[in-house]
């Protein structure tokens, strides 16, 4: 299993052909209390870098961008009624969607954990 990160503070954990996507602990910390989440539609296809969801705190709204291209195969519908899960468990129960990668080679363009930590300034 591989975990990769984007410059926009998403993580993707890849298991075979399926990647699970969420926002990083750094991102939820910066956003503050999450009060609203909008998820993509299951079955839709997205290209790397497309807006695939929205996360909003009391202060501001942010887009969630697809870290890779592919088909959305599952969304975390529990977040709609419990958006605070994104703050509590950003890399666990706070995942946003699962995507079937159409081009696994795109992962090579993403950051590994060390590179992301440097990027986020942690």
């Amino acid at each position: 299993m591989t975990v990769k990160y984007t410059e926009d503070h998403e993580w993707i954990r890849v298991d075979g052909a399926i990647g699970t996507v969420g926002i990083t602990d750094h991102a939820q910390e910066q956003l503050g209390d999450v009060v609203f989440v909008e998820l993509p539609e299951t079955g839709s296809t997205v290209a790397k870098g497309d807006a695939a969801g929205v996360v909003e705190s009391v202060k501001a709204a942010s887009e969630i961008y697809a870290p890779v291209s592919g088909e959305i195969v599952e969304v975390n519908a529990a977040l709609v009624d419990a958006p605070q899960t994104v703050n509590a468990e950003p890399t666990g129960a706070g995942w946003f969607f699962k995507i079937r990668l159409s081009d696994p080679g795109e992962l090579d363009g993403l950051m590994d954990e060390d590179a992301y930590k440097a990027h986020a300034g942690d």
């Binding site: 503050g32 209390d33 009060v35 705190s57 009391v58 202060k59």
Partner: peptide
Amino acid sequence: PVQFPLGVLGEH
């Protein structure tokens, strides 16, 4: 200060 450790929701 935009927020303290309690956070915006908690402070509100």
